[in-house]
Design a protein around this nucleic acid. Structure first.
Lengths: 197, 197, 197, 197
DNA sequence: GTCTAAACGAGACGGTACGTCTAGTCTTTCT
DNA sequence: AGAAAGACTAGACGTACCGTCTCGTTTAGAC
């Protein structure tokens, strides 16, 4: 019944102010204490304008992260796969700390109870990063730094699983030394040639 | 200043009704839509009684899960470590999948924004299961099914990390065949003898 | 600072559509539920166009009523003053009764909280009708049907006061028989010869 | 579905604070600009508490007026009916004039678009005053100051009609001298013995 | 077996944020 | 330049829960 707004007439200024305010407030007060009203006030924007373009607080944060994310944690390629993974994962860890103020952690929490948001998060935020990881991994295989039969899915699970496991069970994100240990184990796991003789 | 209530005079009937109502409502409406008011109404209990004994909705669900959990996913010991892990992890996966995932997923979501709850969850729900996993792993080492130098933390991260990673990023929990692949990789990773020649 | 629009370039079509839409909506949904947005939508006109020419919803309705009113309740002159008053007042009563009372009652309500609108209503809608009543009364005096010293203000108050009194206190507008009784009383009151002996 | 609140547990303090705040705000900002939010803030009360006991702003003002009204305009009885009417009507006029006219005028305006409120206003605010007027009038008849056949309804219409007529059409409430003239006319009208011989 | 203190049910309270609504302004595009 | 379309800021609306706070009413341990 209520016809959708016309995106062509959208105010770029308001959009930017909203996304900026959301990230700021998330950092200052934590995702949980941040409210739509607070975002509107900070951005100097009417609540209506937020509700016109986003269905929920999570959707705003998702778009803000999407906007910022490409520059945040790219996969470097220095030629040393293990070292590059260490660099990239350290960035991700920094991005998830501290959990209560991390936009991504809040988004993860909301997505656990909002399937629509979960799908958006997966498709817009997660998938592209999985893709980027896949490309880096394939280069590592071509350069002989990773076994050519290594499975992308398994690699993803073993590299990043520990991070989210520790994040959501509050076991403490890995320290650098432990991160090295983890990466070493995973690379070994991905080499099927190392099975028992 | 408000003195704590006397646990000796606590009504067992109310406590049980509250925990039962919480799990029921969680299943029926979802964790997010469940409210303290709703639990009180369903349990035939005053809101005050809930707030007297628990600080938050999450704490109620945590206790309800704690009550139910010991029986949920014990670590079997048939003598075959890989097979036992497969069995146990399959149980965990079932527990993390719809429709039964609501209470735990909701709890995880709340804990991401409530450090107090996060600590309770870790100490009461997670730690005991880590301990149980540790015992099973040590037996596997004694029986020569796992390398004696295998690191407990790494093992935990690599076995269970993929599950939570996939849960919170909504990538779909592992199917049985893929679960086998994962376990195989992890056991290989835990064997330092499989390092480069 | 915003200069007034040039009335010469005003679109007659828009003006008519707005006034028509206002009266229609007033009848269909009631004055209170009618909105400027609704009028604009119904008239196929931009809100801006309404605000350009009228300061408020009340002003639109006022103009619409003004347009329609001259033909509504003229003072007949059959030579019988009492009978003519009965006719005219019956018309007014019909105008103040459901379902047609919506525009005027709404206007009256708005004017009670908007002095600007109140003044417009008095000058454009009320004054001309008082003038018309005055002319009819003076003819009645010339024809000897009303005492030559009868006071116009008092006559107006006593004839029409009961109508508005009953309208705004929701006491029910006069039935025909009671209207006769009222008119009889008023005409008697206006004859100072009928003072105490 | 939503069961009504229990009046026995109602907080008298909140009720009084709300009614007081409503009348104060009405005087300070005017009925139209007064909001439920404003009343709640001024009274130090939650909006919910207002909505729990009253359906609308008008209902609050109605109750506040009802509370205050008995003491406002009683019908004196000095033995001189005309003089007493003059006194009482002057009080009413003062009550309907700025700045004190705000609550009643606002209520009248709201009642014109809210039938429920209109009925409440009539039954709780208007009827009792009509009854009081009727009693005074009957005493005047017994004391021979008013014709024994004088009609209560007509008397009410002719005495008070001019006040409301002038109020809602913004013609200016009667000055004292004109009030005398009016009363004189009305008393004459109510004496059927003064008809033409 | 009373007595009595505290836990209980019920639910009203002050708050906060929600998501919706309309007012009135401003911007863009078309005629 | 006027008008249509409609996005914008502003802010009140009425609702939902929150967590706190009385109220009487059980009820269980101590006397």
């Amino acid at each position: 019944m209520t016809k959708p707004p016309n995106p062509q007439r959208r105010s770029q200024k308001s959009r930017d102010a909203i996304l900026t305010a959301a990230l700021e407030l998330c950092g200052e007060e934590g995702y949980g204490r941040m409210t739509i009203e607070g975002i509107a006030a900070r951005a100097g924007v009417s609540k209506k304008t937020i509700y016109r373009w986003w269905p929920s607080k999570g959707a705003v944060v998702l778009e803000a992260l999407h906007e910022a994310a490409d520059t945040v944690a790219p996969h470097p390629d220095t030629g040393d796969f293990a070292a590059d993974m260490r660099t990239q994962m350290a960035t991700v860890i920094r991005f998830l700390s501290p959990p209560s103020h991390a936009p991504l952690a809040g988004l993860v929490a909301d997505a656990l109870r909002d399937p629509e948001l979960a799908e958006q998060m997966r498709e817009r935020l997660v998938r592209p990063r999985i893709e980027a990881f896949g490309q880096r991994m394939r280069r590592a295989q071509e350069q002989g730094q990773l076994h050519p039969d290594a499975d992308l899915d398994v690699a993803l699970d073993l590299f990043y699983g520990p991070l989210y496991h520790r994040l959501v069970l509050h076991l403490g994100l890995p320290e650098p030394a432990y991160l090295d240990t983890l990466i070493e184990h995973v690379i070994r796991a991905l080499d099927p040639g190392h099975g028992r003789t």
